[in-house]
Design a protein around this nucleic acid. Sequence first.
DNA 1: GTCGCCAACATTGTTTACAATGTGTGCGAA
DNA 2: TTCGCACACATTGTAAACAATGTTGGCGAC
Lengths: 226, 226
Amino acid sequence: MTGTESSQSLDAVPVVDALRAAIADGEFVPNQRLVEADLSERFGASRTSVRTALLQLAGEGLVERVQNRGARVRAVSLAEAVEITEVRMALEGLCAAKAAERHTDADAGRLREIGDAMRAAVASGDLLGYSELNRRLHGLVLELAGQSTAGAILERLRGQSVRHQFQLAMHPGRPAISLPQHIEIIEAICAGDAGAAEAAMRRHIRSVIDTLPEVEAARTRRFDAL
Amino acid sequence: MTGTESSQSLDAVPVVDALRAAIADGEFVPNQRLVEADLSERFGASRTSVRTALLQLAGEGLVERVQNRGARVRAVSLAEAVEITEVRMALEGLCAAKAAERHTDADAGRLREIGDAMRAAVASGDLLGYSELNRRLHGLVLELAGQSTAGAILERLRGQSVRHQFQLAMHPGRPAISLPQHIEIIEAICAGDAGAAEAAMRRHIRSVIDTLPEVEAARTRRFDAL
DNA sequence: GTCGCCAACATTGTTTACAATGTGTGCGAA
DNA sequence: TTCGCACACATTGTAAACAATGTTGGCGAC
């Protein structure tokens, strides 16, 4: 008895959401096998529900399936994380440009609000708070862009690279680099300069890409130390 | 062939492919209901297989499903087609830049070969041939880019907008506009100029976006004439 | 005549049992 | 010992029956 069952089962939450959350939270590590029968018991759902959930998550790129050999949590390599982030660069660049064209004065206020909060978080060394604000900023840009297609794709990609992204936020010295980039993005959008907004967003994400290898190196060092 | 065909769709491989092809070929029109039992008989498969296929195609954005009310072919509006093409612009721009950086001399030969064939097709008024060459060019750029993430996304988007794209190829006067753009893309990639390749690709797809409303207008006119 | 309700139908969602496939293990022979 | 082979186990894939849900048409009341 895992004891977690009474609270979360009762299938109030669809299996697919529970599984996605479990993977995102790291309860299942990359390459871990996902046996249908086990998950069925874990979530108190039928094997069919688990099966369809696995199908869907395979479509989202969170799990890998091979015929007659089951599913496992997909491990995204550094190279794949770079690829994913390059796609994000292109797509979020597009969204930043659109946001610059479409935003209202009220939207500008919301953007600057996040910018101010970011400055405060960095000043006080609140890494988790800054990480959360980072999510909110990128999310708001996406919302202002009104690009549902790009938005859906970015959401999926975020799920795939959530582990790498999280490590990034904790990388030493990272906020000092990314804060001015964020401010630059916000100001370009508020100024209604689509070209500048796209360029600023791309510069920002390019620097993320350049930092990914360091994050990976730090992770492997930590792993080797065990 | 960025393909590496969905090695994750092991449930009902034949059914899902057959259904996808049927939708792409227009055998099922947008908004047409897809009743599981009917499809089951149509493809000689069990209802379960059809069901998982529908699940997967819903994930690919080709069909829409509402709880307890079944599935239907997703109709992509003009606005959605524009959004999709804007995403394609960003992603294919990225791929063009990568292709410029990574291509070999042999690759350049293949690119120019397609370019020459395109000139010939336009000169002889071979619309279908030109349309096919267009597909091959974009596919080759994608292959040279070696971006499997972007490739998979673009493949999905192509499936969603295949109808609009096809109409586009038949649009009068279109080849005269797109041919020099294609040549420009090819030359920029062969020159190894990533920035120019990306810019050329984006200009090309921007012009596709600008043409989409006309195509839609022509389509509705043809529809009204019936 | 129209509105609302109820019952029959059509269709999807879920559970269960069964078949097919892949994997590992132990036995026997060279 | 070690290699092959066959059998048993674990796991996934498929099918069919059953339950739940939404839809449609008709009947009666106002």
